[in-house]
Design a protein around this nucleic acid. Structure first.
Lengths: 246, 246
DNA sequence: GTCTATATTCAGATAGAC
DNA sequence: GTCTATCTGAATATAGAC
């Protein structure tokens, strides 16, 4: 066993353990001692390999987001290539964006559900350096998908699409993070996804099957009638709602 | 000025400042010294008035959730009274549940947008005592609304309704908390709600106008076709989707 | 690369005077 | 009720031997 092997083992072991602990206890709630203890490495190893706890968190995400960003951009490239300049169907855009992420949840070597939960939860961490980091990591992909959605829904105002993109990100993040949070809060069992005996692949697929229709329904809902605050008309079939253009 | 007045001032000032700081920096990211410093009270005052930092957080929420829970139950009682035993329209159930919360955001004396953001953000805090606390505070209200939705959507399987309730809670929480988080992450401006010059009342109303149609669209989306994983059919009119009953 | 030992800072909490 | 002063523990980070 060469020295190189051992180095990588230590680095990887720290990243794997940190990923899990940050998911379970949050960034501030996880100490270096917990990480090095669980990873069975020396306390000083984190600072040697990563420089600081902040840098460790960034690296935990970087190794996963590199794949995710690339995959998401490639998926969109392929769709746009096939469409030959025509606007894409909203469902295909959502499938490329959210489906790609959810497939990570079914792949252990990409972090599985642990990483998905970590991602969903960390997006709400208030620490400044975390927001700055995500801002940089996400910018390009979000911009590309935002433009694709604007083209896909030409009769929906830009601002409304941006809002709904936020709503969708929220629903997804909670759906993922909430797998072991919201159940406690709401007292509602979700079955499958919370069952430790069901592997990540099945859980991720079930989540995708349930989440995608919800997101698409929300994205394509009739626009708000700002002058008529009664919401009763929205009980009519969604497809019967007229899209306002302003 | 009586002693009683001073006591209450101190207590209230601590609660107000803690509410804001927990919102801005999270529970673990806020120290007692930050709170007492900003509230201009002595460090020992928190432990004197509340007993511990954990108890302080619980009290910050209790004073707001007491009103919210009561209002939500009353709104549902009224709807069910008017309906005379008939199932409620989904839009009315959502309006009672989410509209009540969003109206808090427009009322400074109920915490305004600060409390709404705190609530949305705190639901994802991983600390055990926080989950336990919310579980107890939310149980009754969630159960009532869950049953109302199950009656309101008789052709949607129970499990699906529970999932979609989670999705809606997530979309709402992020929409609120994300007011100053997701904008940074996505780099997308949301206008109104992020403009410090727009008061809470306007921001809360605009958020409600945009969020409610999205939630209703998601709640009423066609059910997933578990045996057919192609999602393209979902571009068809939502009302044309068949509801599976199992 | 890994380890021990430690520097430094900061956290929550409390004792006891006023 | 409020204050000062302090206890106790834990946090991140690093210096320096191996």
């Amino acid at each position: 066993m060469s020295d190189i092997k051992i180095i990588q083992d230590t680095r990887e072991r720290i990243l794997d353990v940190a990923e899990r602990l940050f998911m379970e206890r949050g960034y501030e709630g996880t100490s270096m001692r917990m990480i090095t203890g669980a990873a069975e490495v020396n306390l000083a190893a984190v600072n040697y390999h990563f420089g600081s706890k902040e840098a460790l968190l960034r690296e935990v995400f970087r190794r996963r987001l590199a794949w995710l960003n690339h995959e998401r951009l490639q998926a969109l490239d392929e769709l746009e290539g096939q469409a030959n300049g025509a606007p894409l169907k909203p469902s295909l855009v959502l499938e490329a964006f959210f489906g790609t992420l959810l497939r990570m949840g079914g792949n252990e070597s990409l972090g599985g559900m642990t990483f998905l939960r970590l991602l969903g939860r960390t997006l709400t961490e208030p620490a400044e350096f975390i927001r700055t980091f995500f801002s940089g990591e996400y910018a390009e992909v979000i911009e590309r998908y935002k433009l694709a959605l604007i083209r896909a829904l030409p009769d929906v105002p830009r601002a409304e699409i941006v809002w709904r993109l936020h709503f969708m990100l929220g629903a997804m993040s909670y759906a993922i993070a909430g797998t072991d949070v919201l159940q406690v809060v709401t007292g509602c069992e979700l079955g499958d996804i919370s069952d430790a005996n069901v592997d990540d692949k099945v859980a991720a697929q079930r989540l995708a099957d349930r989440l995608m229709p919800f997101l698409l329904g929300g994205l394509r809902a009739p626009l708000p009638q700002f002058l008529d605050l009664s919401t009763q008309q929205q009980d009519a079939s969604p497809s019967s709602g007229k899209r306002k253009t302003a």
